[in-house]
Structure formats: structure tokens, C-alpha cells
Design a binder for these strands. Structure first.
Length: 734
RNA sequence: GGACGAUUAGCUCAGUUGGUUAGAGCGUCUCGUUUACACCGAGAAGGCCGUAGGUUCGAAUCCUACAUCGUCCACCA
């Protein structure tokens, strides 16, 4: 027996222990002892290389590591595959902001190649920081398989998927209205748009015999269609297709009457004019009735020649000028100053969205393709399905289970409202479209076509396109590797509920199409970490808890335990520093239990207690009819604790598992049995069984606690004369 | 406008097939410096489990309505 130091110093122990794990090779499933069977795989949601890890990452990393360590101790061949995400638009916009702040330069001042070098450097630095942080969290992932969404292997996967989907007619190019960010000069997907309520003046303007309402008079120059509901009695005398002269902003125009059921009769006057180029609703109406579409605003937010005297002026500036002109012409009838409007903002950069019609690439969610095999429940090989059907089917059939259950309904609802997914972005950082043009010809392939005349599409792919492939691209796909055959589908996808649509749904889509299989069997969603007043953590509020900061103060184990301890799946987690501090005390308590047990255990007993000692332990006590009430009580409660902890693990109730073991360790073992044992140890006849029980309890709680608090438990374990590391010891049975 | 979630001790939260005196962390009060631990122990105060009904032998838990807060979704010009 080696003596435990008087106090536990997490900062000194953790790096030493982590190195010991790395040296053992046990993070790599291929290097686990041969008796490890039944694969258990988790793909790590790759953190964005946009800086550093925040507390939300720490939560995810902890939960996944807890699951992985539990599975590993259950004798499973566990693979936790780590990686990082290039996060295209988020990373690029971070660098753009930086160079603008420092040098007042834009990416165009640098040019594509030079700018990309800057982004890559930033991404590399972020990557290094993030990996170091993950290691400090104690994550037991297989670093030999680390992946990046933009590395060579993943590029092959992306191009292969794109090519196949294009050839199957699931990817097409078309002119659609998209969310355009004039500042970043790129499109963003529907899911990336955030809506913000703003009070804006609402103008009632005379339009021929009608009055129309708008918050955006600057878009109205080209409005030559006036739309109303077919059942609106007020406008009965106007027929669909009627033409009438109207005095408009810049003179006389001819307006055409359109009847469409999407018009809300209750709103405003029940009449509106449409701007199909700059409004999604209007675009849909124009499509339905085959109407002309005209661009009013350019891609930088300036008015085009149709605005005549206002041409070249930025819409922000032009707005009051146009209002003034309408007033002069007597067209402005009324202004409602209390109108609350919802404006669209790019959540990845913060600029106002200006809808535009652009040629973009889309994934068609309603086109049919043939299933490659029978792996999807209820779908046979060769059967035709759409991506939409597929995404719904795998969850409805129970092949993928979402925890907590309530997100299932939200997921269905999202699918029902799903439109084609715009996958092209006009930014530079990311996977360049594997598309080349020559005159009117288009070539899609993995390698560029022969010949200099072919020009590659300048756009890049939405970052979620590559993330969607993550569970299988990381295992070597499109090559038919043994990793892919062995570890896919993965067992659990553990992530925050905020990326259910962005990512979970896209992974289901991608593996459904490319493999005709599910990417994972279980989805486990955790909540957002908030501060103790339930506020979102943000830099501006100054309520950020920095994972590394608290690790330095209280130790990784304390942070991990605090994160898992009092939260249910999918619920947000208020985290106060006091909670982490409390868990540091718990680590200290455990340390002192170990010190007490070890100073009272002679080496004879210690040596006679190898890891797999449970049956051994029972036989050693059998025939001993001198067990005291305290002995019997603690052994019974220990059994019960093992049972409950294991059950809670299996049901993803990690917080309850943590609470059970916490309660037992402190308030049963330490408070009661250790106190009782002090007397029993003085009694010669009771001494040996008491020592045996103490040691047995210690061994079991170290195992039960190890998934949550890996460092302190492994450190104590190293003082127990055990053959191998705690990380691969056998999970106890009740 | 639709959907979902939350409402439990002073504060932050657990409490999943309805079942004995409703739990934890932090905080408060009293006592205790016994060689594992003061990062401790013993004990105490503190809860009409949002409101009102209903089902049941029995409800924090199931049902209905309402209130407050929050989140997500949605093409109100």
C-alpha cells in the first residue's frame, strides 16, 4: 500500500492521470483487452473552430464521456470519435470582423487565396486550443481517429455525396428567393435566420383606387400587381386580370389585379401590392400566377435604376426620402407609428436579411430515390422514397429514438414544413462546390474535368452539408472500411436541442440517402447551460463561466459532477459556481474516505482483493455470522445503490445516477458506516470483516463514480494494488 | 396565430410506470475542535408541490380549465 497524501490536489493529479490513460491505449477500441465485445460508438459533435470551448461544450463532452466510460466498464468495445467543424460562415465572419477591426480591410482587399490563408491559420489555432480543452475535460476519445469536416477524407465524402445526389436528381440548381445578407454577401438558410421584433412606422399609401399598407416603401417601385382575396366583397367589382392606371411613386403605371387566397382580409385594407424579388410570400404568389419579377435592390443594399432619382442610394438612406416624396405627391394617407414588425437577421453575422432571387443549389426534399438495401425499417431495397418521408419514417418506426420524447413532435412539425434546402453559400471558407461550367455545360464530379475552359463554381457548400455526413465520413466512407462496417450506425448522438434541425435532421437525411441506414439509434438532447438566474450566458452580460477557469479552481471532476448532477434531459441547466465548489468538497470527501479505509486496511487484505473480487468478497464473508447491524445495513444499501445507478444509466437518467451515488457515498458510507466502523475496528473479532467490507465499499463506489469523476477515482485506485487501470475495470453487479 | 416546456424549502433545481414522514446543493440557526475530512459532524428551522375543479382507497405525479414566465415554429404585406 502506498499512502495517500493528506489532501487531493486536482491540478497536479489530472494531467498525470490523463497521460496514463493515453499511454494505456484504452481510448482506442482496437487496443482494449480482448474480452471487450459488443461495439458502442459515439460520434462527437464536432465543436466549431471559432475560438474556444464554452460551458455548453463542457456539458456535452461530460455527458458523452460518462456514457462512454460506463459502456467501456461494462466490457463493451467503445469508440468515441472526436473531431472539429470548420463552421464555414461562422469562422469566416469571425476572421472578417477581426481584419476589419484591425486593418479596416475586407476579404475582397485580400483576395480569395490570401484571405483563406488567414482563415485557415485562425481555424488551426482554434483547433489546437479546443483539443487541449477537451483533453482537460478528461474526455476518453480515440484521438488516433480524429477528423475535421474540411480535411481530405471528408472532402472526398462531401464530393461523393454531392455527385450521387446530383445524379439521382436530389440536387438541382435553380432561381429561388433566398435569404441574402448584404454585408457578408452570402445567402443563409432558413434555419439560420433569426427574427427580431422592431417598432417601425407603417405607411398607408394610395394605390389607384386602393390603399395599401407597407413598412418598406423603398421596395415598392416596381409594384405593378395588386392582390386581394377572391372572396373579399369590398373588391368584388375588380376581376382577376383587370388592368387599371395608377399614379405611383415615379409616375403613371399600369396595375394588374390578382386574386389570391393567401391574402389576409382582416389585415390592413385587405389589399396589397407585391415585390416578388424581395419577399418570400410575394415570390410564391408570383410563381403561382406566373407574374413578372423585377429586382429593385442590388446585392449591396442599394437601389437599382428602376428607382430612377433614388438609384444608387442605400435603402436605409432612401427610406425617409421616399416617404417624403410620397407625402409631396399626396399618396401617403396615414402613418401608424406603433406598428411592430418582425425583421430577419442573420444569426451568423448579425446583418439584416434582404431577400433576393438568386441562382442557388438546392437539395430537393420531395424527389424520390431508391433505397439501396433493407436496413431502413419498413422500407425494402429498391423502394422509392423521398428524403422527407425517410426523415419522418425512421423516427416514426422507432428505429431512432429521441430523448426526451417531446422533441419527437417538434421534429415532425419541422419536417412537415420543410422546404428545399439551399446548400450554396457565397462565402470562401468551406467546401467549394464540386461543379464546373463551360458555356452552357455543367459538370459535377469528384475531380475537375479535363481542359482549361472549365470554370469551377465559386460558391461553397453550407457547412451542415459536410456535418450531415459526419457519423459515416469519419469512419472512412465512401470507402468500404472495416471501421464503417464495425462502428456504424453509432449508438448515441448526444447534443444540445438547439441543433435538432440544423444537424440531427441533416444527419438522418444524409445517412438515409447515402447508406440507406440510420446514423444513430438514440438521440439524447441536453439543455442549455444558463447562469444561476436562468439567464443565457453571454460575454456582454458578463455571466460566463469559463470551463478552464473553474477547472483550475475546483478540478475537472467537480465541474463534471456539477454539470451532470441536477439536470434532466432536455431541460436547461442553471449552473452556479457554488455548485461546482460543492462538488469539489465531495471529491475531497471521497479522498478522505479512501484515506480512512487505506490506513485501516492491512496489506494482507488489500492484496487479497483484486479487481474482480465480488464473488471472492461474498465467499470471504460467507460463514461469518458475526456481522453487525451496521455491516448488514451498509451492504444492503450498497447493493441497492449499484442497482439504481445501473438502471438510471441505462435509461439516460444520468443526473439521478449521480445523485444516488453521491447520496450513498456521503450520507451512508461516510456519515454512518465509517463512524460505526471506528468502534468495530477496536473489537478483535469484528476487525477483519469490517476491514473487508470497508475496502469492498470503497472499490465499488470508485467504480460507480468513475464515469462522473474519472480523475480522483483513478488516482485513488492506483493506491489499491490493482492489476490494471480503473478505466477498464468491470462494472459492479448488485 | 400554432406547438412545447416550466411553475416544488430563502435561492437554484431533482423527484418517468400515482403508494409510507416530498429530496439535494447553497444559504440560515444551535451544538460539537472525538487521530478520514472544518472542503467536517450532530441537530433544527423552513414546503396549502402556481390556482380551481375532476379521476382514485390514495395525486407533486393522471385529466380539464385558468394564470404567470420561457422556448420553438409560422409567408400578416
Amino acid at each position: 500500500m502506498t499512502e495517500l497524501p493528506k489532501t487531493y490536489d486536482a491540478s497536479k493529479v489530472e494531467s498525470k492521470i490523463y497521460k496514463r490513460w493515453l499511454d494505456s491505449g484504452y481510448f482506442n477500441p482496437d487496443k482494449l483487452p480482448k474480452d471487450h465485445k459488443d461495439h458502442y460508438t459515439i460520434s462527437m459533435p464536432p465543436p466549431n473552430v471559432t475560438g474556444t470551448l464554452h460551458i455548453g461544450h463542457a456539458l456535452g463532452a461530460t455527458i458523452q464521456d460518462v456514457l462512454i466510460r460506463f459502456a467501456r466498464m461494462q466490457g463493451k468495445k467503445t469508440l468515441w470519435l472526436p473531431g472539429t467543424d470548420h463552421a464555414a460562415i461562422a469562422t469566416q465572419s469571425k476572421v472578417e470582423k477581426e481584419i476589419y477591426k484591425k486593418e479596416k480591410k475586407t476579404r475582397h482587399d485580400y483576395g480569395r487565396e490570401e484571405f483563406l490563408k488567414l482563415v485557415e491559420k485562425f481555424a488551426q489555432e482554434s483547433h489546437d486550443t479546443i483539443i487541449e480543452q477537451l483533453k482537460r475535460m478528461g474526455t476518453s476519445c480515440d484521438w488516433s481517429r480524429e477528423a475535421y469536416t474540411l480535411d481530405e477524407q471528408r472532402t472526398l465524402a462531401v464530393r461523393t455525396a454531392f455527385k450521387n445526389m446530383y445524379e439521382d436528381g436530389l440536387i438541382y440548381r435553380g432561381s429561388r428567393i433566398v435569404n441574402w445578407d448584404p454585408r457578408l454577401a452570402t445567402t443563409v438558410s432558413d434555419d439560420e435566420v433569426e427574427w427580431e421584433e422592431r417598432k417601425t412606422p407603417f405607411y398607408y399609401i394610395k394605390y389607384g383606387p386602393f390603399t395599401i399598407g407597407t413598412a418598406r416603401p423603398e421596395t415598392k417601385f416596381g409594384d405593378k400587381y395588386v392582390v386581394m382575396h377572391p372572396d373579399d366583397k369590398r373588391y368584388k367589382k375588380y376581376k382577376h386580370g383587370d388592368q387599371l392606371p395608377v399614379e405611383w411613386i415615379n409616375g403613371k403605371i399600369t396595375a394588374t389585379v390578382i386574386k389570391d387566397k393567401t391574402v389576409d382580409m382582416e389585415f390592413g385594407t385587405g389589399v396589397m401590392t407585391i415585390t416578388p424579388w424581395h419577399d418570400k410570400t410575394d415570390f410564391d404568389i408570383a410563381e403561382r400566377h406566373n407574374l413578372d419579377k423585377k429586382q429593385i435592390i442590388d446585392y449591396k443594399g442599394k437601389l437599382l435604376s428602376i428607382a430612377q432619382e433614388f438609384a444608387g442610394i442605400h435603402i436605409k438612406k432612401a427610406h425617409p426620402m421616399i416617404v417624403e416624396k410620397l407625402k409631396e405627391k399626396g399618396l401617403l394617407k396615414k402613418i401608424d407609428e406603433n406598428y411592430v414588425n418582425r425583421v430577419a437577421i442573420n444569426s451568423r453575422g448579425g446583418e439584416l436579411i434582404e431577400p433576393q432571387i438568386k441562382k442557388q443549389w438546392f437539395v430537393n426534399v420531395n424527389a424520390k430515390f431508391k433505397a439501396k438495401n433493407d436496413k431502413l425499417k419498413g422500407i425494402i431495397k429498391g423502394q422509392e422514397i423521398t428524403l422527407k418521408d425517410l426523415m419522418k419514417n425512421v423516427v416514426a418506426s422507432g428505429q431512432i429514438k429521441i430523448t426526451p420524447d417531446r422533441f419527437t413532435k417538434i421534429y415532425y412539425h419541422w419536417i412537415d414544413n420543410l422546404r428545399d434546402w439551399c446548400i450554396s453559400r457565397q462565402i470562401w471558407y468551406g467546401h467549394r462546390m464540386p461543379v464546373w461550367y463551360k458555356g452552357k455545360q455543367t459538370y459535377v464530379g469528384i475531380e475537375p474535368p479535363e481542359g482549361d475552359e472549365w470554370k469551377q463554381d465559386p460558391d461553397t457548400l453550407d457547412t451542415w452539408f459536410s456535418s450531415g455526413l459526419w457519423t459515416f465520413s469519419t469512419l472512412g466512407w465512401p470507402n468500404n472500411t472495416s471501421d464503417l462496417k464495425t462502428y456504424h450506425p453509432t449508438n448515441v448522438m448526444e447534443t444540445g436541442y438547439d441543433i435538432l434541425f440544423f444537424w440531427i435532421a441533416r444527419m438522418i437525411l444524409m445517412s438515409g440517402y447515402n447508406l440507406s441506414d440510420i446514423p444513430f439509434k438514440d438521440v439524447y438532447m441536453h439543455g442549455l447551460v444558463r447562469d444561476k438566474d436562468r439567464q443565457k450566458m453571454s460575454k456582454s452580460k458578463g455571466n460566463i463561466i469559463d470551463p478552464l477557469g473553474v477547472i483550475d479552481l475546483y478540478g475537472t471532476d467537480a465541474l463534471r459532477m456539477a454539470l451532470v448532477f441536477s439536470t434532466a434531459a432536455g431541460n436547461d441547466i442553471p449552473l452556479a459556481e457554488e455548485k461546482i465548489k460543492g462538488m469539489k468538497h465531495f471529491a475531497n470527501k471521497l479522498w478522505n474516505i479512501a484515506r480512512f479505509v487505506l490506513t485501516n486496511t492491512p496489506s494482507v487484505i488489500l492484496d487479497a482483493t483484486p479487481d474482480d473480487s465480488e464473488s471472492n468478497f461474498d465467499s470471504r464473508l460467507r460463514g461469518n455470522n458475526k456481522l453487525t447491524a451496521a455491516d448488514k445495513d451498509i451492504l444492503q444499501k450498497l447493493k441497492l445503490t449499484i442497482k439504481k445507478v445501473t438502471e438510471n444509466f441505462e435509461k439516460f437518467r444520468l443526473h439521478e445516477a449521480a445523485q444516488e451515488i453521491y447520496q450513498f457515498t456521503w450520507h451512508e458510507l461516510a456519515d454512518k458506516y465509517l463512524e460505526a466502523s471506528k468502534e468495530q475496528l477496536k473489537d478483535e473479532k469484528l476487525r477483519e470483516p469490517t476491514q473487508t467490507i470497508l475496502l469492498h465499499c470503497l472499490i465499488v463506489i470508485l467504480k460507480l463514480l468513475h464515469p462522473f469523476m474519472p480523475f480522483v477515482t483513478e488516482e485513488i485506485w492506483s493506491h489499491l494494488n490493482q492489476k490494471d487501470l480503473l478505466i477498464i475495470s468491470k462494472w459492479p453487479t448488485p
